[in-house]
Design a binder for these strands. Sequence first.
DNA 1: TTGGGTGCAAATCATTTGCAATTAT
DNA 2: ATAATTGCAAATGATTTGCACCCAA
Lengths: 141, 141
Amino acid sequence: MTSESETTEKMTAALRKAGIRVTRQRIALLGVLAEATDHPDAVELHERAKAIEPSVSLATVYRTLSVLEEGGVVHRHAFEGGGARFETTHEEHHDHILDVDTGEVIEFQSDKIEQLQDEIARELGYEVVHHRLELYCRKKT
Amino acid sequence: MTSESETTEKMTAALRKAGIRVTRQRIALLGVLAEATDHPDAVELHERAKAIEPSVSLATVYRTLSVLEEGGVVHRHAFEGGGARFETTHEEHHDHILDVDTGEVIEFQSDKIEQLQDEIARELGYEVVHHRLELYCRKKT
DNA sequence: TTGGGTGCAAATCATTTGCAATTAT
DNA sequence: ATAATTGCAAATGATTTGCACCCAA
């Protein structure tokens, strides 16, 4: 069990590392992001952050998400339909399966596919800077 | 060489097949789409269509693109940055490489990757409805 | 103290839509 | 004739930004 103050300390450290000021709003948002496992969008993150720190505005959520993204702390995904969805950056790179019926997001990782991508790009005279692989799926019956 | 009237006939046939009325605006847009090899966005398509048929409005471009998409005549792509970009549907499925410096789009196709995608989804209890694979690349030096 | 950060409201950007006029069938 | 289609302008939805106040360093 992580105590509230421990969590706050962790958020504070992360913000310090990113070289930006530690504010109530940013601690709240970062906390919410850390807990989330469902790739929420900005509005959803705003709702959750407000529950912790009512003064957080949607504008600040957007501004902070951009700063955190630049700092490599969060990843922004532009899945089909609706606005951008976010997740905290984790060690291993991964791609996503999206359940077209529920909107649920499942992460997966395939070295083989990554390799093939590099190969294909190389053959065409390119090198992959980053990529996007999303499988829009339905649960098998 | 395809004559102008031949092109118009082709467009007319396509619209008839899609079960929608043949209008000057739609013929112009469809003609522009057929010629394009660069995955233009709606504004660009509007510019090009206006050169053929000045009465085409941007609203009609958007409306027609949606209808044609539903009819399977065109594909809509939501690449990173900017608005949607379109291409006429062609036989073989393919994915895209995007030159991050020039915005150029290169098409490619890999059965191996497709197979791996299906495999991954299946193992997780899903079946792929459709997917999105985009390689954001830089020309090799 | 002071420059970064914030909330608010107004501005943007891509896209959609209501409506009255036009036009394909 | 008449229902589909259109242009225009206003509406939308997601995101950004200007500005005056606030607060972390």
